[in-house]
Amino acid sequence: MRRKRVELSAKVLVTFAALLTSIIVFGIFYFLISDGVRVFGRVSPKDFLFSARWYPTYEDAEFGILALLAGTLSVTGLTLVIAIPLGFVCAIFLAEFSGRKSHDAIKYIFELMAGIPSVVLGSFGLKYVSRWLMEHFPLHVWTGLNVMNASLMLSILAMPYFVTLVEDALRAVPRDQKEASLALGANMTGTIFRILLPQARSGILNAIILGTNRVIGETMVVLMVAGGATMVPSTIFDPVRPLTSAIAGEMGEVELGSTHYFALFMIGVVLLAISTVFTLIAMKLKRSKGK
């Protein structure tokens, strides 16, 4: 009797917690969207999405987020180009080639890396990486705060995350498949590219998508080192102002209920939409893996 009661109350508690969490999540969605859409009463959706002119505080204000969106996409894209190959090499080494000691040592380094606060990375980029970029690429770099600087810093942020997920995916490949390949006379390189990577494909894609989500949402680093110019970049050394840094930089001073205020919420909705799409793709991949 008593056990039953304990069980029941535990059940109620867990259900309540689950309900509360979903209410909070949907509540955030609701408030974000209901405030965000109000910008369309004053700015047309076409201008908002397809104009690159973000001048929210002037007499004749303009609220086009194209340049901000281009900032987010360019920084995220370049980060992936840097972090994915590097992360792959590290993950393959950790999963297949490292001895126990070197494995633990490298893992430890990545754990340390994962613990670096983003504001510290931002300060590092602002002070040292920007100077380094200007000194070593004087022909191309006209400002030290640019897409490249932000992507380098974000790569440091994303790498530990990415390496861990890819390594897990590689380790999840059944051992007998790998051993069968080696027993048939295939060398290690062939085994990795023909057996391990194809087998771990969905896990790897999942890692890439989760890593991308993490990079898109990162705010402090891009606010500090991406450059803050509302321009559509034409090279990787142009300064940009990603969506997240526009929200973080401007929300503090914006007048409640103004067009600017609603526009910032709409930017939040855009970010949320991007990350929801990525999450849905990741979920779908996971499901197809189960088949």
Binding site: K127, S130, M224, G227, P239
Partner: peptide, 18 residues
């Protein structure tokens, strides 16, 4: 558009130094 808007005066000074 190419004017870089930074979040702090200190960051501005730092960039002008560099």
């Amino acid at each position: 558009p190419q004017v870089q808007q930074l979040a702090s005066t200190r960051a501005e000074v730092e960039q002008v130094v560099q």
